[in-house]
Design a protein around this nucleic acid. Structure first.
Lengths: 229, 229
DNA sequence: CACAAAACATGACAATTATCATGTTCTAAC
DNA sequence: GTTAGAACATGATAATTGTCATGTTTTGTG
């Protein structure tokens, strides 16, 4: 199910939309389409990347191993995201690992494409800058949440985030299903604490579950809780 | 003590070094030199910035107010740093407040200078990108530290950071003196907890104090502690 | 120099969260 | 369908951290 970047819809969501037709053609010619199975890595922390990944489908968790041996999920990248930009631009090894949370389809774009377009097309450079600026703002917000909110508040926020960014299916269940462990690693807490809080949220009517699927039952309540009421 | 950007040394440390002579001349003609007193703000969270600040001397804390009313310091900007880039580039209101930690000298550079140079000079755009990429990596590291390390470990890291980034005077005291409250806001903890930990570090011989001045007495010990040994 | 305000310090206690132990349920492979 | 292993769940307990109260020291200002 491969196709030309020029016609790719996900491009609309990322900085590649600022490329000219010519530039896109080159990207299209050199890109490599890949399928990645749930649980498999796109790359590991510390690797040298020769390009970026444009996510066509599926979700990847970007995480970093802490010195205490726990994995902290820093970001979830979904359809339209470009992964690996930071390390390609800084010409550094990656500071994060990327693992597929569910089956993914991605296009690998060699870094030469990116770097030469940055040199020649200021609109593209500015578009990339805007995206990076946005990521930086989000990272700042995460820092504040991590340090100033309780675990309970952060779990509540995590579910609101999942609804906002990945939506719900027709039954109202969150489209993206994460394991309790993954949620704990997003929130930065022990898996048991996370499970406990989810149980509590069920009892209090904030959440509903059916197997692994989770549904937000009281969004207002969760929001209030996340704000500290 | 004003002067021409072309001759300014601090420019070497930031993205302005990628500007051409002509571009620098324009910046120099339109920049405004300002002195900011300890404790005074450069700008407040939510403001619209009409330009960036190039720090010539002194230190500014960049912080964000949490919903619980506490201020979280996200970054400390020192000589050579450019403050406000993110929000000028994203054309958004600032997500952080900037307050002078000690007396500062800064040059305010109107955003038109920055934005037009970004459009015309790819080297400058790439240089800015590199800096932003670096900031983003640091932010990721902070996220991991905040969520996976104990308060004690984070306090230890904070002092190592202060030594690394601001150095020591000839007596071995940290050059940058922060109040206990500021340190607590960097580390993301209660002021009392921070004070308690500093006292403990003194007792254990990791730190030495003389009035408000703090000296790192056992760097190896602090490092081990920060790593979790 | 005096004195008020801010910063620093410490104790007592409560709340939050992690850890360890153990049991149950789900799931994928045979 | 069995069955082993993973994921989920919960209790008990300990460790960490925050909060409130109170006292001391430092600092800046008239």
């Amino acid at each position: 199910m491969e196709s030309r970047c020029e016609n790719c819809i996900v491009r609309q969501f990322n900085s590649l939309r600022a490329m000219t037709k010519d530039e896109l053609k080159k990207v299209s010619d050199s890109k490599v389409y890949k399928k990645i199975k749930k649980g498999d890595p796109l790359f590991e922390e510390g690797e040298k990347l020769d390009g970026v990944f444009c996510v066509r489908d599926g979700v990847s968790k970007l995480s970093k191993l802490s010195t205490n041996g726990k994995d902290q999920v820093v970001k979830l990248a979904t359809k339209g995201s470009v992964i690996g930009q930071r390390s390609v631009i800084a010409e550094e090894h990656t500071n994060l690992s990327a693992v597929a949370v569910n089956d993914m389809e991605v296009c690998f774009v060699p870094k030469e494409n990116i770097l030469s377009t940055l040199q020649r097309n200021p609109d593209f450079a500015i578009e990339v800058l805007r995206h990076m600026a946005h990521d930086l703002k989000e990272a700042d917000d995460v820092i504040v949440n991590m340090s100033q909110k309780t675990v309970k508040q952060r779990v509540a926020e995590a579910f609101l985030y999942l609804k906002q960014n990945f939506g719900e299916d027709n039954k109202g269940f969150l489209r993206l299903t994460l394991s309790r462990e993954d949620i704990a690693n997003v929130v930065g807490t022990a898996t048991e604490s996370c499970i406990r809080i989810i149980s509590e949220f069920k009892k209090k009517g904030y959440l509903d579950t059916s197997g692994k699927k989770i549904k937000i039952a009281d969004e207002r309540g969760l929001k209030d809780l996340a704000q500290g009421f």
